[in-house]
Design a protein around this nucleic acid. Structure first.
Lengths: 337, 337
DNA sequence: ATCCTTCGTCGAACCGGTTCGATGACCGAG
DNA sequence: CTCGGTCATCGAACCGGTTCGACGAAGGAT
């Protein structure tokens, strides 16, 4: 069931079948009809490997994800889903590559094996060896998140610094004076994870600008850590009246800690930050927070990647999104006392 | 940078380079050394498409996932992660195919385009057209979950019916007499989603066997639905003292409903079911529940698929796992009154 | 010295598509 | 009637690997 067999049964040459299918050269209506009949009868579909070899492109995109051991956050899950869907809309397949450290066989296969036409890289660090690797392999790629010095690379990202700044202003406007940032884990900060570092920087600058007392803590990406972390905040800095967070996984623990401490949100304590929409709405009360537009970002990454594949010499493009803060009901005026 | 170029620079023929790399025929040590030097110098890696075409296999597995629009549950996420990791351990790549209805271009590409050596299908229905499609395409595949009449197919699954039965016995042993099953959404039940239907059957049989009064409700996969659902249970059947659930997404809502109703678990109400370990432990109090061994199941699916690929005529195999129930602290004796 | 192996290597065919240049049939214009 | 130009189709080369049969050189046995 290959193209030669189709050609034989339709009484034409292989090239005619190819042209009939691709439409790249005119083929008479009668011949097209005959070929299509044979194809329908035999259920023929061209061999993807052969086509990729001949055309020099695979119609496949690579998506580099964190290894399964690190559980995906809701935002990351949103990226994966939207990239896959956006690719499917263009009739492209997605090849998954779990990549953690520097020496990763799966990542190397993707990069050097010409298995994909381009790569989308997520969860990158400020200094990421994989970005360097892809650049020198001259394989088109787009990062979700950006390295410290993006140079001539393509990327999409959310402006964590800007969003955190707006959260701080929001709290300052409500009269809060002592605030805390609940960041991602210390390991991620130490590794140079962009969102964590940019959030911290934005937080410190904004609080300084508004004259607020600022504290920051790192918190592992688990509910239990969120609980412990919040209790520590209460005992260590009881004067804190509001928290900003980008740590989704810690939220259930924070919720429980608030409850255990008898604090009612937002009457006794305000909570905001950058959080996936679904989780913000599942919180009680729903969180006033910046929703990370994971779906938009994923789709945008695919669009940029396709543009880059279509024209490799095009000027690098990027997009820094700053979504609005959804005013729900987890922030209020500073409690008196 | 193809095999011919390597051959030229090493002063040998293309076939010798191929044999030196694959080891399928002896090549003198000196020649191997020379070839390896050239390869290292040029950073050569064989073209995956060409190799796939020549060998007749792609070293890629297809993973059919629900489309992104339906948000993945924690258990499903566990499947994806473990399948990808297990495949990577065998130096195989994973091609993702989002598939919902029957007519799916991405799924068809996977099936007929010889892009993959085998397919893992998750979230299947009791009657699933995709299983039929794969069978007639004679492409090796393994399902996570099983159709109603698996016949000669390969699959791995968790024995939802058996697990729910054990949950019911556990509650009966604690003296509960009025219990409810909080199932997945009515749409899934109507579509013929195996776990939902088998859970319901197991629940009804087990409660009948133990002489318990049983009710069942369907609940959409959202926190808000869980809240509404539980409140309805309380008003409609106030005599119910325990719930069994397989609906992970509803848990936050159930938690809030319990809290709002002033019910303390397990003193006033018992809760158990089949739930991803992480979520069971994040609950307050931690849930006595059967942890779905998603990681084991994913790895097992890959193992079975590889066995099937290696020997297409082998007897179909399957695995029905029944993990133990983890006794945590969400179940207790029936409250008196 | 001759024959038979074994070892290492080579050339050619093949996998299943795409694409380019060429060719023949048919047409209208001169 | 012949010439030039489309139009549809064909054959061959190519993409970059793998694999099979063959072949020459070296070594051992007779």
């Amino acid at each position: 069931m290959n193209i030669g067999e189709i050609a034989r049964r339709a009484g034409v040459s292989r090239s005619t079948v190819s042209y009939a299918l691709s439409g790249k050269r005119p083929v008479s209506a009668a011949t097209v009809q005959r070929i299509n009949d044979v194809i329908a009868e035999l259920g023929y579909r061209p061999n993807a490997s052969a086509r990729a070899l001949a055309e020099g492109r695979t119609r496949t995109l690579g998506l580099v994800v964190p290894p399964a051991s690190r559980r995906l956050t809701d935002v990351q899950l949103g990226f994966v889903g939207s990239v896959v869907d956006a690719a499917a809309a263009h009739d492209l397949d997605v090849l998954l590559s779990p990549s953690g450290g520097d020496h990763d066989r799966s990542f190397e296969r993707i990069v050097t094996g010409r298995r994909v036409d381009g790569v989308i890289l997520m969860e990158i660090l400020l200094e990421d060896p994989r970005v360097e690797r892809l650049s020198q392999a001259s394989l088109p790629f787009v990062t979700i998140g950006h390295v410290e010095h993006p140079g001539a690379s393509w990327w999409v990202d959310v402006d964590y610094g800007g969003l955190i700044t707006r959260c701080v202003h929001h709290l300052a406007d409500l009269g809060h004076e002592e605030v805390v940032l609940i960041n991602r884990s210390a390991e991620l900060v130490a590794a140079g994870y962009g969102p964590a570092l940019r959030s911290a920087t934005g937080f410190l600058e904004a609080t300084a600008a508004r004259g607020l007392r600022a504290r920051t803590v790192c918190c592992a990406d688990e509910a239990a850590a969120g609980l412990a972390c919040f209790e520590q905040i209460r005992t260590q800095w009881p004067e804190v009246t509001a928290a900003v967070t980008i740590n989704e996984a810690a939220l259930p623990g924070v919720q429980r800690a608030l409850h255990r401490a008898g604090l009612e949100v937002p009457r006794d304590f305000s909570l905001t930050g950058v959080i996936a929409e679904r989780l913000a709405e599942d919180f009680h009360p729903p969180l006033t927070a910046a929703d990370v537009p994971a779906t938009t970002l994923g789709r945008l990454a695919v669009d940029l990647l396709l543009a880059q594949i279509a024209d490799g010499d095009a000027e690098p493009r990027h997009a820094l999104l700053e979504p609005p803060i959804s005013l729900r009901s987890s922030t209020g005026a500073r409690p008196r006392g």
